[in-house]
Amino acid sequence: MTFEVPKVSYTGKIREIPLGREGNTVIVGGESCYPFHLFEGEMPHPPKIAMEVYDSEPEDWPDTALEPFADVIKDTAAWARKCVDTYGAEMIALQLASTDPNDKDISADEAAKITKEVSDAVDVPMIVLGCGNVEKDTDVLKAVCEVCEGRDLIIGPVVEGNYRAIGATAIGYKHTVVASTPIDINLAKQLNILLGNLNVPDEKIIIDPSTGALGYGLEYCYSVMERIRMAALIQEDERLQFPIISNLAREVWKTKEVKVPESEAPLLGDMKKRGILIEALTAQCVLLAGADILVMRHPEAISLVKESIKDLMT
């Protein structure tokens, strides 16, 4: 008797979602099996990595993260160009962190202006993420949608508190939304239902079930992501059959472990290597849980993960 690998039989499939403007699209999703279970089904589009850029010079980054971008850090558009030209970014994620009312509180129009500049500077699909303040994001993302009409941006986070305003604007200007929920499968599903009720087309929704960094609750986020994938693929849960985005870099690079220099914590080892590995490992985990788009920062972490994706896909 020969040994047979037990196989999961899948009944569902993740939606295929094209991102970016015509001629320069990237397709995500389409899986008909668990992540990298290529012996059971298909993963027509390997997960993509979006390199993040910020709308103003970051103040709290460790030097190890700043170093690769030192020459462009003051100019968001140049930064984005460098990500594409030098590091081969497949997508760009613009973080509008300065819009935060508790931070620089830059206006919606200013944020829209920066977004437009970046969007004109690069051709790859572009994700635009607000600061996470429900009201401010509404103003900012509405303005962004307007000035970037025709660019087919991916905008977010769209949450229960502002899905109507942002969702409606996104429909009007034909952008894709990131439906963001706090680590809970029911809330994730609920928001997708609400967006559907609002008439946001299904091929314009990406979901973000939230993530933490390695050592900061990642296992819980992992479980929720995994559960979402299970519901989508074997439990015919239509409202969860969407590609997943994981906005992980900002979580990783704010932790103590990437910021403490070796001189203060010799046991933690080389600071640069440490940061890169924590980012890469966090990414690796969410990849295995089902993420389709990873928002990442350090070029070396990115190349590690790319290599791993390549290995897993063959």
Partner: peptide, 12 residues
């Protein structure tokens, strides 16, 4: 229409 129509959809 776009600017005002959004308000019909988002409920404002």
């Amino acid at each position: 229409m776009r600017k005002r129509g959004v308000e019909f959809v988002d409920g404002t």
